[in-house]
C-alpha cells in the first residue's frame, strides 16, 4: 500500500506540473491576443520611430517563438519583465502587494470555514428546528446578495451610521473587519450549502443506519462516522475557495480601497500594464494549481478508497 501511495502522489504531482506548463503557455497566448501594449503606453499619436524603438526595447519585434522561449526562460529565472507603469520588476510589484491580500483572504477564509462548516452541519442535523432553518435561510441570503452590495450596506451601517469602523484603507485591524466579513459571507454560504448536503447524505447512508442500530450515541456517530465521510466534498470546496483567494478579493479590495493584489490587478488592467497583469495571473494560476494538488493529496489521506481505485 505504501508504495502505491507514493506512486499516486508522484503521478498527481506530475499532473500538476503539466497543468502549470499549460497554464503558463495559455497566459502567454492570451496576453499576445489582448492588444498592442505599445499603442496603449505611447498613445495613438506616437510616431512610427518611437513605436519601433519601444517595441525593440520590449522585445516585441522578435519572432513569436523566440518571444515565447524568452518568456519561459524568464519565468524559470523568476523575472516577469518590468512594469510599464512602475518601471520596476513586475513580480516585485505584485509581491509587495501580496501580504495585505493574504491577510485579508486568510482572515476571511478562516471566518468562512468556521461559520460555513458549523452552519452546514447545524442545518443538516436539525433540518426542521429553528436554528437549522435559520442556517438554511442564511445560506440562501449569503449566496444571493452580491458582495459589493453587502459591502455598501455594512459600510453604511458600521462606518457611517455607527462610526465604529473605517470605510477603507489598511490601517490596523479595524479596517480589516468589514472587508473580511464581506468576503467571508459568500464563501461561507457556499461552504454551508455543500456541507449540509454532504452531512445529510452521510446521515442517510446505510452505515449510519447500522451504527444507530448498534446503539452508538448520536454525537459519536456524527463525529466519527458522518464528518470523516463528509470531509471529502467539503475539502474540495475549501480548496477551490483557497485557490481563488489571490484574485478572489478583487471586488472587496476595490470597494474598501484595500491596497492588495486585487486592487493592483484592476489598476494594471486599466493601464494595460502587461507584465504586472501577467505576473498576477501567473501567481493566481499557480496558487489554484497548488491548492488543487493539496486537495488531491488530501483525498488520499481522507478517503482510503482513493488509494486503490486510482487508475
Amino acid at each position: 500500500m505504501r508504495r502505491n501511495t507514493q506512486k499516486i502522489f508522484a503521478s498527481k504531482i506530475a499532473r500538476a506540473l503539466v497543468t502549470l506548463v499549460l497554464m503558463v503557455t495559455s497566459v502567454f497566448v492570451l496576453m499576445r491576443c489582448a492588444g498592442d501594449p505599445v499603442t496603449v503606453l505611447l498613445g495613438p499619436d506616437a510616431t512610427a520611430d518611437m513605436r519601433a524603438a519601444y517595441s525593440g526595447e520590449l522585445g516585441l519585434d522578435r519572432p513569436i517563438l523566440a518571444q515565447y522561449l524568452t518568456y519561459l526562460h524568464n519565468i524559470v529565472r523568476g523575472s516577469l519583465g518590468v512594469s510599464y507603469v512602475y518601471r520596476q520588476d513586475a513580480l516585485g510589484v505584485v509581491l509587495s502587494h501580496l501580504p495585505l491580500t493574504l491577510i485579508l483572504t486568510c482572515s476571511a477564509l478562516t471566518l468562512a470555514a468556521l461559520t460555513g462548516v458549523a452552519g452546514g452541519i447545524t442545518a443538516a442535523v436539525f433540518p426542521s428546528s429553528f436554528i437549522g432553518r435559520a442556517c438554511t435561510i442564511g445560506t440562501v441570503v449569503g449566496l444571493c446578495v452580491p458582495s459589493f452590495f453587502l459591502a455598501i450596506v455594512l459600510m453604511l451601517a458600521f462606518s457611517i451610521q455607527l462610526n465604529w469602523l473605517p470605510t477603507g484603507g489598511a490601517e490596523g485591524w479595524r479596517s480589516l473587519v468589514l472587508p473580511a466579513i464581506t468576503m467571508a459571507a459568500a464563501s461561507s454560504a457556499v461552504l454551508a450549502r455543500y456541507t449540509r448536503v454532504a452531512v445529510r447524505e452521510s446521515l442517510d447512508s446505510r452505515y449510519v443506519l447500522a451504527a444507530f442500530a448498534r446503539d452508538i450515541p448520536f454525537w459519536r456517530i456524527l463525529i466519527h462516522h458522518v464528518l470523516p465521510n463528509a470531509a471529502v466534498p467539503i475539502l474540495t470546496i475549501l480548496g477551490l475557495l483557497i485557490g481563488g483567494a489571490v484574485t478572489g478579493s478583487t471586488v472587496v479590495e476595490t470597494v474598501f480601497s484595500w491596497p492588495g493584489i486585487g486592487n493592483l490587478f484592476v489598476t494594471s488592467v486599466g493601464n494595460r500594464d502587461v507584465p504586472v497583469v501577467q505576473a498576477i495571473v501567473l501567481l493566481a494560476g499557480t496558487a489554484m494549481i497548488m491548492t488543487n494538488l493539496a486537495v488531491d493529496l488530501g483525498y488520499t489521506w481522507l478517503d482510503p478508497r482513493s488509494k486503490s481505485s486510482e487508475t
Binding site: S205, R206, Y207, L209, A210, A211, A213, R214, D215, H224, H225, P228, N229, L302, D303, P304, R305
Partner: peptide, 18 residues
C-alpha cells in the same frame, strides 16, 4: 441492544473511511 441486524450488502453498512 436486544436486537441486532445483519444485511445483504455488508460493505454498504460499514463506514468506508474507517
Amino acid at each position: 441492544r436486544q436486537r441486532a441486524m445483519i444485511y445483504q450488502q455488508p460493505s454498504l453498512y460499514l463506514n468506508p473511511v474507517r
